[in-house]
Amino acid sequence: MSAIIQMKEVNKWFGDFQVLKDINLEVGEKQKIVVCGPSGSGKSTLIRCINRLEEHQKGQIIVDGNELSEKTKDIEKIRAEVGMVFQQFNLFPHLSILDNCTLAPIWVKKTPKKKAEELAMRQLEQVQIADQASKFPGQLSGGQQQRAALARALCMEPKIMLFDEPTSALDPEMIKEVLDAMVNLAKAGMTMIVVTHEMGFAKEVADEVVFMDEGMIVERAKTSDFFANPKNERTKLFLSQIL
C-alpha cells in the first residue's frame, strides 16, 4: 500500500510556541486515521498543514506526490484534491446550499454548470438533504449544515478527506446524522483523516488511531490495540477520562 500522505520530521511554531514537534506520519490510500488528544495538542494544526492552511517551518509534507513548501506552485490544485470539513461548517452564507456545492466545481474545475448541479444533487442525496438544496445555510440546522459542508467538499471529488472536529459544534442529537454520513463515506473507500473525540466512530471505522499530546505523536496503533491495550501512560490517562 503506497502512502498518499507523508509527513517527515514536521515542525511548526506559532511565534515562540512550538505546536508540532517532529511529526512523522504516513497515510496509505483508502486508510482511515482518527487523530485524538487533549485540546491544544496540535491535532487541528496537523491536519491543517496537510492542505497548507497552515505552513510548517521545518520538515517535509508530501501529498499525492507533491511536496508542500513555499515553492509549491499551484497549491490550489493540491487543495482541490484534498477536501476538508470544519468544526464551524464554514458554509458560504450568501449562497444557497446548491450554489455552495457547485461554486468550486464550476469555477475551479471548470465543470459545466449542468453537470456540476447534477453531481451536487447526487452528493446532497447521499447525505440526505437534497430537499434543502435551494435553502440558505442560515435556514438549516447545525447537523444539516455540516452534512451540506460534507457534500460541498465531496463535490470536488477529492482523493483525501480531512475532518477537523466535525461534530464538536453540534447538539448531541445531531451528531449521529453527521457521523452516519461519515461512516457511509468511509465504507465507500475514501482516504480519511479525522480529528474527533467520538471514540465510537473511531472504533467503527478507523484503521488506526493516532494519539497526540503537546505537539507530538505519542502513540499510533491499530484501532483494536489502541483501545484494548494502550502502551503509553498519557494515552491510558486520556482514554480513562474520555471513555
Partner: peptide, 24 residues
C-alpha cells in the same frame, strides 16, 4: 473560516475574493 473553506476548495486568491469574500 470563510477564507479557510474557500482555500480548501482549491480557490485561488481572486476566485476566493470575487465569489466568497467580497459578496459577503
Amino acid at each position: 473560516g470563510q477564507y479557510d473553506a474557500a482555500k480548501s476548495l482549491g480557490m485561488g486568491y481572486w476566485r476566493m475574493q470575487i465569489f466568497v469574500i467580497l459578496p459577503q
